[in-house]
C-alpha cells in the first residue's frame, strides 16, 4: 500500500476540484432535465431523480420540433464533413509531400489565417455572395460557409498525420510502378485513416454546433438547425426547463462521445500543424 504523501493528497484534491468544476454544468444539464417546475421553484436538489431518466425522451413528443432541428443539423454536419474532407485530404497530403512549389507559402498562410478571421466580419460579404448565388435560406449555403472554416483545421490534422508516414513507403510504391494518385489513394491514405476520422469528427461538429451563419442565413424556422433552435429558448420562459435541457442533452451527448474518442489526434493536428506550416 502506498503511503499518503503530501503531494499525493494535494493532487487528489486538485483533481476533485477540477473534475467538479468541469463536470458540474454538464451534470446540471442532466439534473435540470430531470426536474419539474415546482422542484426548481422551491430549490433544485443537488441529486438527480434518476428514476425519471426515461422522461428525457419525452422531449421528442413535447411540441419542440427537435427531430427536425437535429435532422437539419445532421444534414449541415454531414455536408460540411464531406466537402471539408474531400478538399482537406488532398490539400493536407499535398502540403505534406510537396515542400517547394510556387504559392505553397501563401496557401499555408491562408489556411492558418482562417483561424483568426472573425465569422462576424465575413458574414456581410458572404451574405452578399449568397444572395447573388441564390444560396440564402438553404442548408447548402450553410454547408459552404462552414466548410470555409472547418476545412483548414482538417487540412492541418491530415497534413501532420501524413508528415508522420515515412516517405520511403511512397518511394517503394513508386518503384513498384504505382501511378502518383494510386500511391496517394492506396498507400498513404489508408495509413492515416485514424486522423481522417479525427478530422471528420471535428468538421462534423463544426457543422453541428455552428450558430452564427445559421441564425443569419436561415429565415424559415423549419430549416433551423438545432443550435439556432436551442438558442431560441434563451430568454424565453414558456418552454419548461426540463424540456430545454433534455433537448440540450440530446444535442450535446453525441459531440462529447465523439470528441472523447478522437481528441488525441485533433490535439496533435492542431498544435503541430498550425504553426510548423
Amino acid at each position: 500500500m502506498k503511503r499518503w504523501t503530501g503531494a499525493g493528497v494535494g493532487r487528489w484534491l486538485a483533481v476533485v476540484v477540477l473534475v467538479v468544476f468541469a463536470g458540474f454544468p454538464i451534470y446540471w444539464m442532466l439534473n435540470t432535465a430531470l426536474t419539474t417546475g415546482d422542484e426548481r421553484f422551491v430549490g433544485q436538489s443537488l441529486w438527480p431523480k434518476l428514476s425519471r431518466l426515461g422522461n428525457l425522451f419525452e422531449v421528442f413528443d413535447s411540441g419542440v420540433p427537435l427531430l427536425r432541428w437535429l435532422g437539419n443539423s445532421a444534414v449541415i454536419a454531414v455536408g460540411t464533413t464531406f466537402f471539408s474532407l474531400a478538399l482537406a485530404v488532398l490539400a493536407g497530403y499535398g502540403l505534406s509531400r510537396y515542400r517547394h512549389f510556387a504559392g505553397r507559402g501563401l496557401v499555408a498562410f491562408a489556411l492558418f489565417a482562417t483561424q483568426m478571421l472573425p465569422e462576424a466580419l465575413l458574414i456581410v460579404p458572404l451574405y452578399a455572395l449568397f444572395v447573388s448565388l441564390g444560396l440564402m435560406n438553404g442548408l447548402l449555403g450553410l454547408v459552404l460557409a462552414n466548410t470555409a472554416f472547418a476545412m483548414p483545421v482538417a487540412v492541418w490534422i491530415i497534413k501532420s498525420a501524413v508528415d508522420g508516414i515515412p516517405y520511403e513507403v511512397e518511394e517503394a510504391a513508386r518503384v513498384d510502378g504505382a501511378p502518383r494518385f494510386a500511391i496517394f489513394a492506396q498507400v498513404t491514405l489508408p495509413l492515416v485513416t485514424p486522423s481522417i476520422a479525427a478530422a471528420a469528427v471535428i468538421t462534423f461538429f463544426d457543422g453541428w454546433n455552428e450558430f452564427l451563419f445559421a441564425s443569419t442565413f436561415i429565415r424559415s424556422t423549419e430549416k433551423w438547425p438545432a443550435s439556432k433552435g436551442l438558442s431560441s429558448f434563451i430568454g424565453e420562459y414558456i418552454t419548461p426547463l426540463s424540456t430545454v435541457f433534455s433537448a440540450s442533452l440530446v444535442f450535446t451527448v453525441p459531440a462529447i462521445i465523439f470528441f472523447l474518442l478522437v481528441q488525441r489526434r485533433i490535439i496533435s493536428g492542431l498544435t503541430a500543424g498550425s504553426v510548423k506550416g
Binding site: 454544468p25 440540450s248 462529447i256
Partner: peptide, 8 residues
C-alpha cells in the same frame, strides 16, 4: 467542456 456545443 471542450466538446460541448456552445449553445448548450
Amino acid at each position: 467542456p471542450w466538446a460541448a456545443p456552445s449553445i448548450a
